[in-house]
Design a protein around this nucleic acid. Structure first.
Lengths: 133, 133
DNA sequence: CACCTATATGAACAAATACTCATATAAGCA
DNA sequence: TGCTTATATGAGTATTTGTTCATATAGGTG
């Protein structure tokens, strides 16, 4: 069963019609996919991960973030603008300095879930040092 | 309290020393950050999201995936290679055709978590159509 | 063997990305 | 008002990324 049976059309690639028919109704909405990839993109960069990790714990101003991360004020500010545009982060002005915090519990949750897992994986690597299974 | 007090060094930007001191011990391990951003990068593309969404439900061969996604066999194959290199997906040969499945429950979990949220967000957009709060 | 099909892959290319540098904005203080 | 500090931002740039196109591999079948 489920043997490769040709489509009506010939010349094009053979397709398992039952498998395709099984999948087609369950496809994700295009808008969902776009918004989802946008969210994951926000978490797909080391600098932004470190920024969000810090902001999820504590309110910080730009220069403090730059100091903690060992990065340029400009680089940090550009990333904060990126995160602000996605409403992942929000800012508050106090005189001359601007404080940022995390503004999206869902993104923060995804990040924390990822951190927990990645931390365990790296710990295991440390302990078994490549030998044994 | 927590007023901007200058660092030892002058000329450089002023930093809230207490805030920085509070954060520095909690920084993520570099390897963790790298591996984490690699994982999120895998989920940060619409094509890979759709591939993984399908493979998390069902084993599929390359040409069926291409058909379901409406994409070139080559494009799908390139992305599968990418996902295979990260061990997010695994393949099984059966004669001439190669079947893929999801091979990383953690990544699949992150994806599902994201899908659930994004789906609700988009549904809300649909229903309120920009008006009301 | 020759010929087919399914998949993989290298090169090329356009688009997106993350940074740097220089400069702009905007608030505080003399 | 003019000077200083904190942050934002535009332009430029090197790198990465996702696709296409052409071709290679590898198994099936006659």
């Amino acid at each position: 069963m489920a043997t490769p049976i040709d489509d009506d059309r010939c010349g094009e690639s053979m397709v398992h019609q039952d498998a395709v028919a099984d999948c087609l109704p369950g496809q994700l909405d295009e808008a969902v996919v776009e918004s989802l990839s946008e969210s994951f993109k926000a978490l797909a960069d080391p600098t932004r991960i470190r920024i969000l990790h810090n902001l999820s714990k504590r309110e910080l101003c730009v220069c403090d973030l730059a100091e903690v991360l060992g990065m340029t004020q400009s680089a940090v500010s550009h990333q904060l603008r990126y995160l602000r545009a996605l409403r992942i982060v929000k800012s508050r002005r106090e005189g001359n300095t601007i404080y940022y915090t995390c503004d999206d519990a869902h993104i923060a949750g995804l990040l924390q879930m990822g951190i927990d897992h990645a931390t365990h994986v790296e710990e295991d690597k440390e302990n078994t040092h490549g030998s044994r299974s």
